[in-house]
Simulated scan of single mutants.
Amino acid sequence: MRSYILAKGIIKAISFFLGLGLLLFVLYQLRTLIIYLVIAAVLTLLCRPLVYFFRERLNISKTLGAVIALVIALAIMSGLGLMFVPMLAEQTKQIAVYDPENIQVELDKVYEKISEYSGASKQDVADAVKETEIEKSVMEEMDDEEGPTLMDRLINILTQLSIGLLSVLFMSFFMLKDHSSIQRFLLAMIPKEHRKQTISSLDKIKDLLSRYFLGLVLQIFILFIIYAITLYLVGTENALIVSFFCALFNIIPYAGPVIGAVFMALLTLTSHSDIDFSNGALPLVGYVLIGVTIGQLVDNFISQPFIYSNSVKSHPMEIFVIIIASGLLFGIMGMMVAVPMYAVLKVIIKEFYWRNGFVRFWTKGI
């Protein structure tokens, strides 16, 4: 009898791990579809207030409201594309025609400026660079003749982006139009005794996440304006596109602003390679870092408190611990999704365990 029970337990354990492995394998194979669904869900949450406004204030049907909201979102994305794609195309064209000999000349200029500023000889700087194999890597990339295949890669990327965009818009439309049907489908899988709490949780989650992502867009826009003004004033090339991508880096908590600052500082140096290093380029880098500091002060003391107070209703220390813990467990992606997932968790726990005194204290205000 004991051997039968033991064998049965072993079979159940093996079946569980096999099923789990199969599920993870299927999810990995469908990772592109999952990414499309996540992006569509975020776009739906961003457009949801517009659809609600059209329906309640302008008496526009949900279907037409969803179409108008997505057209507005598509127009904004197209505007950003029209603004940034020509700059990217110009940079791509420049990369495609790079001559390895010109790269060597530019590296020599960098050697000379670093030598003058640090007091080291040119040979010492060259030896240090060779030890890190930076120059070797750069020259190998340039000699690899990637330029002629760049257009093929670009076409492939544009094709994938077009398919992804159409898929996201299609899914977002039906999420906006038929969200009640989707909700009923999900509720059909929930036991009847828990459906009331589930409905309340879903409604609160949609409201909180909508406010969170709208606040995140506002946060990125504010940083983009501050960075763009800073880079424009110091004369950094392609200030708009650089500031936009550096503002996007801010999505990565704590590490993102540092990456953006380093990126802007390096591009500022390369944009002013023809001026004196210590008396010209370095002060400009200092001005860029001052602009980054101003942007981060605005972000930390105005933007983020506004976003967190209207979404997760949590103390900054609480958010800090959650983000760091998520980063340690799941890496950068964990840090990026930590705050919205934490908000979802708090809502669910409050709805199902509201009688607990600690839960009422922890989730107060949600």
Rank of each mutant, 00 (worst) to 15 (best):
I226E: 12
E237Q: 15
L216C: 11
L248M: 12
I226G: 00
F224Y: 15
A239M: 08
I220Q: 09
F244M: 04
D207L: 08
I241P: 07
S201L: 02
T236N: 01
I222Q: 02
I222G: 06
Q219W: 10
I241Q: 11
L240A: 13
Q219E: 15
S243C: 08
P253F: 05
G256K: 11
D203P: 06
A247F: 04
L214Q: 14
E237S: 13
L208V: 08
K206A: 08
F244Y: 07
F224C: 09
D203C: 00
A239W: 08
K206S: 11
I226D: 10
L218V: 14
L214T: 15
S200W: 07
F244A: 15
Y212V: 04
G215N: 03
L209A: 10
P253Q: 02
Y232F: 12
L209T: 09
F244H: 12
I205H: 01
I252A: 06
Y254K: 00
I222R: 03
K206D: 15
V258F: 10
G235R: 00
R211V: 07
F245I: 13
Y227S: 00
T236C: 03
V258K: 03
Y227N: 07
C246W: 01
D207K: 14
T236G: 01
L223K: 08
D203V: 03
I259L: 14
G256Y: 01
L240P: 01
